[in-house]
Design a protein around this nucleic acid. Structure first.
Lengths: 216, 216
DNA sequence: AGTACAATTGTCCAAATGGACAGTTTTAAT
DNA sequence: ATTAAAACTGTCCATTTGGACAATTGTACT
């Protein structure tokens, strides 16, 4: 069991154990998506992480703390704030949304389920609620700034409040994800295209020729 | 305990017990919203319904069957298909959506939470998934027909596919509900107004003067 | 009153649960 | 090599769980 997983415990990593904690957190997030928050047990987490049951008690004060830390890490991954900040136009944004929603692999699905479980649990757990609310606020904020920067350049209605459109986009995306959970066969792309059309934006073109546009 | 709740056991109701079953179903739906699907126990259901624990085993084959039946009943209530069918214009629809999302009482909130739990559980439970998918399909269908009937009358883009707009509206509504769960302070009304503006529709007017329009 | 059956109730049980903790091994520093 | 702290592990326990079921009560009909 020595260097079994190839992840050598280097002495930079504070005290080791970070690896163990990490494995527990990943396993926990997986199981929240798979079983639902309320059905995750400490034993299942340990087993999934291929670790003994006692490990959980040692590294975390309670199951709930472990789960909260686990889902927050996963949710921060699924909200692509960094990527969004690099976008320059509403056209690019709509293209990204469409791609994100239509080409989903298994990994994306798990993270989406974690997101839904987290939003649901946030209603009961004040700490989680605050963290989630902050994340979603940041998310809308990034969208809002993107829209504001783009306004004037595109033929967007001047009267349209960027913050309102940002909320609309964020909610629409999550709502489509929600419907996709129930019915993966749904052609959600057409809903995104409809909104693009209403906004007077052509996301297709942004995909085929993403490069030769100047910014600023 | 005879005619305690005013609901006299009339001999038309198959065998009575319908009242007991009903109380269990209501309690179950309540607890799904309150605790989350995975944390609901048969004992908690019985206690909430003010009935002994054995009642659950007698009236339902398993906890899961009880929960599924309970949430389906609640979800059918929260999707206002009948109301939607009576609407005549997209303007009225946008007004209804705005009112529904902005003025929410405690009862609405519970039903919304049940809806979210159900959509999440549907991913694991094939029977529930099918029933939920059908309900959501009907929901979009009603919206689609409303949009189709309205097209031409309003200044809606002709190229806009009614089915795409229906999906957009349904997903946006549910997405806003989802965000509202995490942060009830959100001013989701402005997102609805933004969409109304994009659609070229003035929901405010439909509210202030709802009567003197002819239909058909 | 008597009969048949639906409805209800309390009790029981094996299995699973979260967490505690004493004991052991590993690591880093001297 | 010795030591102290950190990391890890298996075991234990009081509770809770879903469901089963025998016993009891209620109801409708003759």
């Amino acid at each position: 069991m020595d260097s079994f997983n190839g992840q050598k415990l280097n002495n930079k990593d504070r005290r080791a154990s970070a690896v163990t904690k990490d494995r527990l957190l990943r396993a926990a997030a997986d199981l929240v998506a798979e079983l639902g928050w309320g059905r995750v047990t400490t034993r299942a987490i340990a087993e999934r992480a291929d670790l003994p049951h006692g490990t959980v008690s040692y590294h975390f004060n309670s199951k709930q703390e472990l789960l909260i830390e686990a889902v927050l890490r996963a949710v921060e991954d699924v909200l692509p704030l960094a990527t969004l900040r690099q976008l320059n136009s509403l056209t690019e944004l709509m293209a990204l949304i469409e791609v994100t929603l239509t080409s989903r692999n298994e990994f994306d699905t798990v993270e989406t389920l974690v997101l839904m479980e987290s939003m649901r649990e946030a209603e009961r757990e004040p700490l989680l609620r605050k963290r989630m609310a902050d994340l979603l606020r940041d998310y809308r904020q990034v969208l809002e700034e993107l829209i504001r920067n783009d306004q004037g350049r595109s033929n967007l209605k001047p009267g349209l409040a960027p913050s309102a459109l940002a909320m609309l986009l964020a909610a629409l995306g999550d709502g489509l994800l929600l419907h996709l959970i129930v019915n993966p066969e749904l052609d959600v792309g057409k809903a995104v295209e409809a909104l693009s059309s209403l906004l007077g934006v052509k996301p297709r073109e942004a995909l085929s020729e993403p490069d030769h546009s100047e910014k600023g």
